[in-house]
């Protein structure tokens, strides 16, 4: 464990808590893409199956349980509890166009052709594009509530911090995992446009408004 990975995990934790609080406090999931949240639930389910087979550390186990629980809770809040506030019209990204390529790529490019490894690889590829429905929705609505943009900033930073973690681990432990690194870079690059808007607008107190 290193400071980059720890702050990355905490940024990830913060993002999930921000989202849950936003939906729970405002009793509304307006502006939130349910499809992205479904993808995240799939990502954590397929990645954390080793929860039942391998004990790494208390931290590792607790975080996996939290990510799994919170992702399903978020999907529940969006599609069941507050479904009246779910914005069907703007959450229209075809997630099958993200899931299928991730399945195919995981079958083609992986470290080992075993069920757990293929599922882990699939979850890594899917996570790199899981935010697209949310970014697509923000572009369609042309704006995002500031709380939603804080959520996106924390979520985007988490994998960006992981990239620093991978540089650190390569330099210090000469350990690296190309699949995770390439997917992590793609994932972080997808946020770049948003990061620019966040830093130039939201941090100046303005609303996140995309140029029409």
């Amino acid at each position: 464990m290193n400071i980059f990975r720890l702050t990355g995990d905490l940024a990830h934790l913060l993002a999930i808590i921000i989202l849950l609080l936003k939906i729970w406090k405002t009793r509304s999931c307006a502006g939130i893409s349910g499809k992205s949240q479904i993808l995240f639930a799939i990502v954590y389910t397929t990645r954390y199956l080793d929860l039942v087979t391998t004990y790494v550390s208390a931290y590792n186990t607790l975080m996996k349980i939290f990510f799994l629980g919170s992702s399903f809770a978020t999907v529940y809040l969006i599609y069941v509890k507050f479904k009246a506030t779910y914005d069907h019209n703007h959450d229209t990204f075809r997630i099958e166009f993200l899931i299928l390529p991730a399945v195919i790529l995981a079958l083609l490019i992986n470290h080992a052709f075993t069920p757990l490894e293929i599922l882990w690889t699939f979850s890594i590829y899917l996570e790199s594009v899981a935010i697209l429905p949310q970014l697509f929705m923000v572009s369609k609505t042309g704006e995002a509530e500031s709380i939603t943009s804080h959520y996106l900033f924390a979520l985007g930073s988490y994998r960006g911090l992981y990239i620093l973690n991978w540089i650190y681990r390569y330099a210090m432990e000469s350990h690296y995992d190309l699949i995770a690194i390439v997917a992590g870079i793609v994932q972080t690059v997808l946020y770049c446009d948003f990061f620019y808007l966040y830093i130039t607008k939201v941090l100046k107190g303005k609303k996140l408004q995309l140029p029409a």
Partner: peptide
């Protein structure tokens, strides 16, 4: 671990 090193990451 089952996967070897590296999967200790979340």
């Amino acid at each position: 671990y089952i996967f070897g090193t590296g999967k200790d990451e979340l």
